[in-house]
C-alpha cells in the first residue's frame, strides 16, 4: 500500500491536547515537516512556552526544554550559546511572548540570537480560560475584558512583527495566516525558510501565525476562521517584514 500521508518524524506519536478546530496542530505540523525536510531534527532543540502549547516539549521529537512563562527566548539564548553546533527554536503564544516575555523577545531579537521564534497569535489567553491578551482586538470580549477591550483604558493590541521590525538585528520577520488551505501552504514555505536560515546560522528569525481559538472565542471552528479573517487580518497584516537575504541581493 502506498503511503500518501504520515506523521512527520519530528513529532512524537502522542495525541495533541489541543481543542477541536485549534490551529496549534497545524503550526506544529508545519514546523515538524520543515524540520524533517531540512534534516534538522537530530541537531534541534526546542523550547516550549507556558500556555496551551505548554506540552509542546512532548510533541516535538527532538531535545526540548520547558520554559517559565515568557522566558523561552532567554532559555534559547543559554542553550544556543552552550551548544552552538545545535539549532534552537521557541514556540510561544501571545500572552507568553507579548506580555510577560516582552523583554526577553525584544532583547533576544536585538542581540540577533541565532534562533527561530514561532509566535502563535490568537488574541487571547487560551490555557487559563480566555483572558485578555496583549493582542486582543479593540472591543473584543474576554473573561477579563467582559465589556470589550477598551483601547482608551488598556491600549491597542501590540503588533509584534512591526515592533521587532524596528530593530536592526533580526534577519527574518514574517507574519503568516493559518486561516485557509492556501494560506497554510504559503505558511509552510515561510516556516521552512526561517528554519533554513536558522540551519545556515544567518541570524534571528521570527514567524508569527495568525491563529484562532474557537473554544475561548465561543465559536465553532468554521465561524472562528471566518471571524479571524474579518477581524484579525485587518489588524495583523500578513506580509514579510524583513528578509536580509533579499537585502543582501538574493540567496
Amino acid at each position: 500500500m502506498e503511503v500518501i500521508a504520515k506523521r512527520p518524524e519530528s513529532l512524537t506519536d502522542l495525541q495533541f491536547t489541543y481543542c477541536p478546530g485549534c490551529t496549534h496542530g497545524i503550526s506544529h505540523r508545519l514546523i515538524a515537516e520543515a524540520m524533517d525536510e531540512l534534516e534538522m531534527r537530530n541537531m534541534m532543540m526546542g523550547v516550549a512556552p507556558v500556555g496551551c502549547s505548554v506540552f509542546a516539549y512532548k510533541f516535538f521529537d527532538c531535545d526540548m526544554a520547558e520554559a517559565a512563562h515568557g522566558r523561552a527566548p532567554a532559555l534559547a539564548t543559554g542553550m544556543k550559546r552552550a551548544r552552538p553546533d545545535m539549532h534552537v527554536f521557541t514556540y510561544q503564544g501571545d500572552g507568553d511572548l507579548a506580555a510577560i516575555g516582552t523583554a526577553e523577545i525584544i532583547h533576544a531579537a536585538n542581540r540577533g540570537e541565532h534562533i527561530t521564534v514561532f509566535f502563535v497569535n490568537n488574541a487571547i489567553y487560551g490555557m487559563t480560560g480566555g483572558q485578555m491578551a496583549p493582542t486582543t482586538l479593540p472591543g473584543m470580549k474576554t473573561t477579563t475584558s467582559p465589556y470589550g477591550r477598551d483601547e482608551k483604558d488598556i491600549g491597542y493590541p501590540i503588533k509584534v512583527c512591526e515592533l521587532l521590525d524596528s530593530l536592526d538585528s533580526p534577519y527574518f520577520i514574517e507574519r503568516v495566516s493559518l486561516l485557509s488551505p492556501q494560506d497554510i501552504l504559503k505558511a509552510k514555505k515561510v516556516v521552512k525558510k526561517a528554519l533554513r536560515y536558522n540551519k545556515e546560522e544567518r541570524g534571528f528569525t521570527f514567524v508569527e501565525f495568525v491563529s484562532t481559538c474557537p473554544t475561548n472565542w465561543g465559536m465553532d471552528a468554521k465561524d472562528a476562521i471566518n471571524w479571524a479573517k474579518e477581524n484579525m487580518l485587518p489588524n495583523f497584516t500578513v506580509k514579510n517584514f524583513r528578509d536580509k537575504a533579499k537585502e543582501e541581493g538574493g540567496e
Partner: peptide, 21 residues
C-alpha cells in the same frame, strides 16, 4: 560565553537553558 542580559530574570533563565545543555 559572556552575555549581559536584559534583566536578572532573563539572566537566570539563560543559566537554565545552558545548564540544560
Amino acid at each position: 560565553t559572556f552575555v549581559q542580559a536584559e534583566s536578572e530574570v532573563a539572566a537566570i533563565n539563560m543559566v537554565y537553558g545552558a545548564s540544560g545543555c
